[in-house]
Design a protein around this nucleic acid. Sequence first.
DNA 1: GGAGCACTGTATCGTATGTTACGTATTTTG
DNA 2: CAAAATACGTAACATACGATACAGTGCTCC
Lengths: 276, 276
Amino acid sequence: MISSIAELISDRIGAMPAGERRAAQTLISNYPLTGLKTVAEFSAAAGVSSPTILRFVARLGFQNYPEFQSALQDELAAQLQSPASRTLNPASPGSGGAVSPMLEATLDNMRETFRHLSEKQLADIATTLAERRGKTFLIGGRFTDPLARYMAAHLAIIQPDVYHLAGQESIWRDRLIDMGKRDVLVIFDIRRYQESLIRFAEKAHQRGVQIVLFTDQWLSPIARFARHVIAGRTAVPSAWDSSAALFVVAETLIGAVTRQLEAAGAKRIRDLESLR
Amino acid sequence: MISSIAELISDRIGAMPAGERRAAQTLISNYPLTGLKTVAEFSAAAGVSSPTILRFVARLGFQNYPEFQSALQDELAAQLQSPASRTLNPASPGSGGAVSPMLEATLDNMRETFRHLSEKQLADIATTLAERRGKTFLIGGRFTDPLARYMAAHLAIIQPDVYHLAGQESIWRDRLIDMGKRDVLVIFDIRRYQESLIRFAEKAHQRGVQIVLFTDQWLSPIARFARHVIAGRTAVPSAWDSSAALFVVAETLIGAVTRQLEAAGAKRIRDLESLR
DNA sequence: GGAGCACTGTATCGTATGTTACGTATTTTG
DNA sequence: CAAAATACGTAACATACGATACAGTGCTCC
């Protein structure tokens, strides 16, 4: 079975005329980037004419050039999104043998999640949470609401006016009345994205509330309304998605907010310390 | 110094208008593939119009869209040629920020936690949860109760009679009446260990309830009464302890229980699948 | 050695793509 | 609250891109 285009090419390169073979070799030698460029660039790189490139692509079974490029992009996407398949490192020695693939996937998810998350972004979000002039609300979906609770439990200690929105939809929907521009709403929403949350986010957005969204890599529709979006990886070899990466981001944010408030010499923090 | 376009974006994303920010977030969440597609596709993915994409690209300093795409391709080329550099921001210079140390510590915690946790232990605990003949109760402390909720949210789907004990102490204390030998109680308790939880665990133990304890490496006093103890590492460079390792163990257990029930051909699992 | 065939490049065409101008909506500022 | 400024989308435009027809070239086989 042929799974990648590279395999497909090396499979058929023998049955190709000279010009197309040059095209194939050029593509393989710089795979898959040359194939993502224009036909003209590809042909120039291979030293052949554009029609030859198109004939080459047609011989591989693609209807047209864009279809060929899409296939390459899909392949690249799969490659980039699953770094696990790329790590040929045979079982790091410190792990001491058979570690569950579940853990490995989770660790990968975290690295990937943070790779797409710069220090600056995190600092910005922390600032949003630390310097908000109004109130902070937190809410989550079916499986992620515990994360909202976890974050709320910490933030509520170092800041006043932190509220977790719990219970029935009708209950927190009515709390929209209290929300305005100076407030921050932290939402956790991974697929399948919940209608009720989306509606809630939209209305909050209309009221000028700043929204911080924790979601998965496919981005909840709420991203439309969000001021800040954190996209965590959720794929693990299990029947369920993993929220572990988002959990770690949440903890990191809690730490960052705490540090900012400390640095700002917030009175509340000093009071807290004197209480301990 | 800014070396990658991703950095450039996250550096300026704060100073962008809403539409362009959505474009930026969409690109980052699926970096860099979205940027390699056409303007129309990019704009559709981000939910904005094409001109917004072009303005976004212009704001990043590119003269036109093709130039932007070329830059992305060059970056990708460099990345593909040196796969080593793809593991996390390699000691990103000037990272006075506390993100990397925090993440590193968390990852270490997980490895350490699982190093002291054999496959067999996990399997045993999963079996305890899967083959229990009575009910499952879950409860946690001030910061760990969300973990109990998270686990309950999943288990309650694949099993009947799973209850999270919430609210005031007096409420769940009274539920002791319902508990007996065939039941399982999952407790999350890290320091400082909560008196109320310890009392509760003791009474449950006296009634013959099987206790599964999630705690930190210093072991909650509840360990005396527990049938199974999971000791997670919690130390991170932050003002707070981290529950991330325990969270991952919880997720792993959820997955293991699910698998066991599937393997046992539980009717409920089949019914669930037919519902989807 | 000549006829047939396959391969490749040049030139042209239609179209999809990036680009720009303009009007409307939204936000910011005095 | 008014007015300016900024941001955003619709629609029209020009370009560059992929596709195709056709002619030239080299090779094979009789």
